[in-house]
Design a protein around this nucleic acid. Sequence first.
DNA 1: CAGTAAGCGAGACGGTACGTCCAGTCTTGTT
DNA 2: AACAAGACTGGACGTACCGTCTCGCTTACTG
Lengths: 209, 209, 209, 209
Amino acid sequence: MQSRTPATRASGRPRSVEADAAILAATREALVELGWSKLTLGDVATRAGVAKTTLYRRWAGKNELVVDAVAELFDELALPDRGTLAADIEGVVLQFAAILARPEARSGLMAVVAEGTRDEALRERIRESIVTRQKRLVVEGRARAQARGELPPENDPVEAARTVDLIFDVVAGAVVHRTLVSAEPADEEWVRDFTRVLLLGLKGASQAG
Amino acid sequence: MQSRTPATRASGRPRSVEADAAILAATREALVELGWSKLTLGDVATRAGVAKTTLYRRWAGKNELVVDAVAELFDELALPDRGTLAADIEGVVLQFAAILARPEARSGLMAVVAEGTRDEALRERIRESIVTRQKRLVVEGRARAQARGELPPENDPVEAARTVDLIFDVVAGAVVHRTLVSAEPADEEWVRDFTRVLLLGLKGASQAG
Amino acid sequence: MQSRTPATRASGRPRSVEADAAILAATREALVELGWSKLTLGDVATRAGVAKTTLYRRWAGKNELVVDAVAELFDELALPDRGTLAADIEGVVLQFAAILARPEARSGLMAVVAEGTRDEALRERIRESIVTRQKRLVVEGRARAQARGELPPENDPVEAARTVDLIFDVVAGAVVHRTLVSAEPADEEWVRDFTRVLLLGLKGASQAG
Amino acid sequence: MQSRTPATRASGRPRSVEADAAILAATREALVELGWSKLTLGDVATRAGVAKTTLYRRWAGKNELVVDAVAELFDELALPDRGTLAADIEGVVLQFAAILARPEARSGLMAVVAEGTRDEALRERIRESIVTRQKRLVVEGRARAQARGELPPENDPVEAARTVDLIFDVVAGAVVHRTLVSAEPADEEWVRDFTRVLLLGLKGASQAG
DNA sequence: CAGTAAGCGAGACGGTACGTCCAGTCTTGTT
DNA sequence: AACAAGACTGGACGTACCGTCTCGCTTACTG
């Protein structure tokens, strides 16, 4: 159990540990009030009670900072155990929709995705901090459904991984599109409809495939 | 068949008709080369051979301009008649994916959606110029499938409209998420998998519903 | 008594005669309200109820327009006959000071002089429209003083012309500097002091010269 | 003998001391090449090797900048000791005329005076930076002439101050009007004539007064 | 008394500068 | 060495005018 002491013994003043949290919180606060495009790093620094240099010492720029600030929001997602696969999916989709209803997530998430279309490093950072991290929900959900006998065990692990990706894109994509592009609420009724179609599709596919 | 002569006789020099097309083309060109965040209206004006003021006389800002420039890209979508519903869906999804593979669409679309999260007028413009306009594909596709007997005719028109919205969010959302967030290509294999799940879900739902 | 009918017989619609006066009046009005630097030709045109093109058809630009607008102000200067040279000078200096107290003259005059430092044609136009035209006052005043015997008749006409120029520069320069640079009023007390010094200088010079 | 250490210890990066001088020099350079009306702050900044923001951080606008740039020119004026009051006056008038013959002074000075007619703060800045500062020449000249016995000592200090103002307006006004409005050179001949009239006027007034 | 050529208003056009704002870096003295 | 403070370069912003142009309409002289 080695502690994460850095190899290079730090000389000079150590970095303030409170600063990181204060900056991320200030970023989310600014996202709520101003949205991504009007958010300025100078303002974030001021809100966090920190100098701009401190901020730049830790993040390369606006995009990286916002990714980190937004990523934390999605960590609160958890797969509820409601007894059936359908109920589990509905539960997690509603949680996801609730996060996307918060202004700091709405504006921030899409903006960094937009930037990510031209910046491989940023795209990778998004994938790592947000996408891949939340795929656990799909994997867990399937395992639980298989344990319950609602879904058959998969034979081919490659095929299984592909299915996880597909489901994740369908679920996340549909909720994002519903809430941000169509600009309609992903309410209980919509979630029920969506889950029904998804589940029938998955069960059909796993039987026929 | 009323001709479109304006009621109010325009006085003063009329607006150049070429300018609009040149500006939108220049915007797409700049989106390809620079992406949304590095695109400047001054640069677009220069590329279009037009003064900045001309541009501002017609569009309120970067967002509105990009919406219009990107919206035109989606007008080339057409529902192919490949004989079966599955083939039709695959066809249009592939077309959609092909458009999203183009850099002028990738960066522009997500950016305006991001801005739309804080600007109701912009959101409405996006809905009107892009979303609603392309829902025709879903409506046509269903009608054609019903004519072929692949789908049952719907009873409730309200329910039918809700289903159109749901399908559109699922299809558009999944493709966008796959290509822009997960950053994986929506290739033929993925489209086949996706279509299969979607179709099974829809058929199951229409039977059970 | 040839009328000023142009050699080239005008065909087509003749220029509106009211427009010129309206434009010059509007220019003075705008000078009062806005000053030279904030005066715009578009605004002048609007005030005059005239299109910008009409204005540009008659004047080359802001400077030429303002020269003409300001020049008219100085035409109201007249040499009073108050019985003595000193009284005559005091009278005309006070008139001159009164004109320079009006905002349309203050701002306009200095501005065109400033522009004239880099534009020979403009400088010539100023000299012709304002300076030379008002030198008549000095010439008249001297003639009257000579008739009264207050000043000796001059022998050398070249010398006489040089003296006119000198007096004009001293008088006009002192009043302008007093009112616009030192920004003190050229009131009766100051005018009396100034006239006394000037007159003593002139008499002394004409005796000794 | 208090040192000029500021009471409030400056925090943050101190302002570049070279920048001020570079900007003023660049302003004079631009005045020579372009004149006041074509001088742009962006161009001045470029010439000075400085960003536009640096310039705006220190001066409120074009007028304030030009006043400071021009004011420095007049600081080189010095009262020569040529033995007699007439010679002293001629010397300083010639110096003044030489400065006004330089294009950076011609265009800049009149322009700021023109602007000053509508801006009390600017007028005060001109008075403080240029007018009042150069009145020392009149005061010194008179003192020296009194020491030599060329002028009687004055009794009334109020009266004396008024005379200084009058002389300054006459001298500066005449030279300015001669060179900038009449657009004739204030050469040695003219200066001799002018000085003679002025001196006779002053002596006459001080005897009779 | 019809034809026609110039004048007119309106307002869009290509340009240029404005003064402001922010990004990201650098230079102080302090901790 | 990190930190707060704030000045620095550089570049885009959106606005305001300039002086030109292109319209359709009006007006007086001409043939």
